[in-house]
Simulated scan of single mutants.
Amino acid sequence: MNAYPFKGKHALVTGGTKGMGEAIVRSLVRSGATVITTARSLPMEPLAGVRYVEADVASADGTERVADVVKREFGHVDFLVNNVGGSSAPGGGALALTDAMWDAAIQVNLMSAVRLDRALLPAMVERGAGAIVHITSIQRRLPLFESTVAYAAAKAALANYSKSLANEFGPRGVRVNSVAPGFIETTAAQALVKRMAEHRQSSEDDARQVLMASLGGIPIGRPGTPEEVAELVAFLLSPLAASIHGAEFVIDGETIPTV
């Protein structure tokens, strides 16, 4: 098997300086890809050979800047991983959320992907080749009403949009799939636990247990790791997944117990 299956390929990964995004960047670099990644602030210790673009892809201006850098410096990308996402809304359920909080969740979790796809898909279609992976979430099927109402709704929209995109562009040579992580031990997950603890006036350990219980538990006994998600994403981008189109792969330790 080729040790560098992505040699000569260009990949854009949004939010690639921490958590799952960083793990995905590392995996693709190991496989030989030239990787461009985005972040609102540049890392203190950048990875060698990675092109960092300082931009907030939750905004139209930010996605335009990223697309301009890609087109000017690389011409096109072979792979696009829309990884950026998250929730900064407070706990307290649906009635605690303002219009601004809803808009923020939709911009980062849905529109960032929509805008970058719109900017970079034409070159993939013209070349008749490309692969896109959207990072959704099991919360699109298992929303946590106490803490992530808007986030869950935006991820559900992203999953629906991803399927539509696959139906439209699969026949034109572009594969679109999505990955739905469950509880993954990232810095963002740790921040969510902290916010829940503050809202509940409890310890972070107690809040973590509440979060685990709200998901129905994790049968394998632990959260997933960013590296596990990264390997799944790399597989979906690879030629080994050439016949996989319009699918969503759940990686949650069997948190969702239904078929």
Rank of each mutant, 00 (worst) to 15 (best):
K7Q: 14
K7T: 07
K9D: 01
H10T: 13
H10L: 01
H10N: 15
L12R: 06
L12E: 09
V13H: 08
G15D: 02
G16E: 03
T17M: 01
K18S: 15
G19K: 07
M20N: 09
G21R: 06
E22D: 11
I24K: 08
R26V: 14
V29R: 15
V29K: 14
V29S: 13
R30A: 15
G32H: 02
A33W: 07
T34S: 11
T34A: 08
V35D: 06
V35P: 05
I36P: 02
T37M: 01
A39Q: 05
R40S: 10
E45T: 12
L47Y: 04
L47T: 09
L47C: 07
G49P: 10
V50S: 08
R51Q: 03
Y52N: 09
E54L: 01
A58E: 01
A58P: 02
A60T: 07
A60L: 00
G62L: 02
G62D: 11
T63Q: 00
V66Q: 04
V66E: 03
A67Y: 02
A67E: 04
A67W: 03
A67D: 05
A67M: 01
D68Q: 14
D68V: 00
D68H: 12
V69L: 06
V69H: 02
V70M: 04
E73D: 15
G75C: 12
G75E: 14
H76G: 01
H76P: 00
H76C: 04
V77F: 11
V77Q: 10
F79Q: 10
F79S: 11
L80E: 09
N82G: 03
N83Q: 11
N83I: 07
N83L: 08
V84N: 00
G85M: 10
G86P: 12
G86I: 07
G86S: 10
S87T: 15
S87V: 12
S88D: 13
S88V: 10
A89H: 06
P90E: 11
G92N: 08
G93N: 12
A94K: 02
A94F: 12
L95G: 05
A96G: 02
L97E: 08
L97I: 09
D99R: 13
A100T: 13
M101Y: 06
W102G: 07
W102L: 09
D103P: 00
D103E: 14
A104E: 15
A105G: 05
I106T: 04
I106M: 12
Q107S: 03
V108A: 11
V108H: 04
N109S: 02
N109R: 00
L110K: 03
M111Y: 14
M111H: 13
S112G: 06
S112K: 07
A113W: 04
A113N: 03
R115F: 04
D117C: 14
R118W: 05
L120F: 03
L120P: 02
L121A: 10
L121M: 14
L121R: 07
M124T: 12
V125A: 06
V125P: 01
V125L: 15
R127P: 03
R127K: 13
